[in-house]
């Protein structure tokens, strides 16, 4: 009972802090910086979700932009359909907007999770780079399907019936509330019994199987969860952009996500968070370079892989880094 109360108090406190930070951010920053902050939050969701499958479980998806697209289109479409219903039931105030927005996000996550299940069930039998190529293939197929879906606006993209686009529901508060929720969920999952089984799959799938770990079921579950988080990010992205278009979910987007998780360190949640922020900020800082920007971006990727393939943090978490300094104990064993 006491524990529940404490948790509820922490929950409320976190929401309040996010709300306060959001107010501060809107007051203190230009709209340009605010957008980068939102984008960084969305990236963090993407990275933390992708890290679950690529880092923790050791399976490799390079087509996650496809799931993000499913989430984005799903949330946008459901949101547009839902808004009049919510307005009738709850009025046109903030409550009604928040209700239909979050329901739309969940719907997008559901669609993305389901498509993750559909993709994952057959293909997770494959290992390593074959799986990578299949996910790439699925990502492209999903994009091509959206590109030809006339009821979703085909190449122009989908933005409801109003030319000014989807309502701009994606605020600092909602992005970071979702970031907090997803980080906590994924963190708890990673350090649970299930998470250890996932790590076992990464380390040695055959040995894990020999230890009676239901490898296929776990891999598919992790994949679906990862796809669903990408879906949430997609829904937030759609409502930030006020619209969705198929060309935003090209292979390059999947590469961006890969960069996020390898910069920070594959298998580290705090690393994924840092990586998500890094990509949002660095792409922005390099914008001046124009045609040279992507050349440098690619070089950066190569150099990281050669010089420090384990990323900034390796598989460690940020707090483990400090613990090491204090106690001087081995990190991998402290898990």
């Amino acid at each position: 009972m006491k524990r529940t109360l404490l948790r509820a108090a922490i929950f409320v406190a976190v929401l309040l802090v996010i709300y306060g930070l959001g107010v501060a951010c809107e007051a203190g920053f230009t709209e340009y910086v605010q957008r980068i902050v939102l984008l960084a939050g969305i990236n963090v969701i993407l990275a933390v979700g992708l890290n679950l499958i690529n880092g923790t479980t050791g399976q490799f998806s390079i087509g996650h932009a496809g799931f993000m697209a499913v989430g984005a289109y799903g949330a946008a479409y459901v949101g547009v359909q839902l808004a009049p219903v919510a307005h009738r039931a709850l009025g046109t105030g903030a409550v009604s907007n928040a209700f239909s927005f979050n329901l739309a996000l969940l719907a997008g996550a559901l669609f993305a999770g389901l498509s993750g299940l559909i993709v994952g069930l057959p293909s997770l039998r494959l290992r390593g780079d074959y799986l990578a190529v299949v996910t790439l293939g699925f990502g492209e197929i999903i994009r091509i399907l959206f590109n030809n879906a006339t009821f979703l606006g085909a190449a122009t993209g989908y933005f409801g019936d109003d030319p000014s686009g989807l309502p701009a529901y994606t605020t600092f508060f909602w992005v970071y509330a979702w970031v907090a929720l997803i980080v906590v969920l994924i963190h708890n999952l990673t350090f649970s019994q299930t998470g250890r089984s996932l790590t076992a799959i990464r380390e040695d799938e055959i040995a894990a199987e020999a230890m009676a770990t239901p490898t296929t079921r776990l891999k598919v579950t992790a994949f679906a969860i990862s796809a669903a988080t990408a879906g949430i990010a997609g829904g937030l992205f759609a409502h930030m952009q006020a619209g969705v278009r198929p060309e935003d979910f090209r292979f390059e987007k999947s590469i961006d996500m890969i960069v996020m998780i390898i910069v920070g360190g594959l298998g580290s949640i705090s690393g994924a968070i840092l990586g998500g922020i890094f990509v949002a900020v660095s792409l922005e800082l390099m914008r001046d370079l124009q045609q040279y920007r992507l050349v440098l971006y690619a070089l950066l990727l190569i150099v990281i892989m050669i010089v420090r393939p384990q990323g900034l943090l390796g598989r460690r978490e940020l707090y483990q880094l400090f613990r090491k300094r204090k106690a001087g104990s081995g990190l991998e064993s402290s898990r």
Binding site: L294, A298, L301, I302, M305
Partner: peptide, 22 residues
């Protein structure tokens, strides 16, 4: 990266591909 885990060369390869395109 030849002796690194199998995915390291894969990502490196994607990087080289991106680099040459641009």
């Amino acid at each position: 990266v030849r002796n690194a885990p199998r995915l390291t060369p894969l990502i490196t390869a994607i990087g080289v591909s991106l680099f040459l395109q641009n």
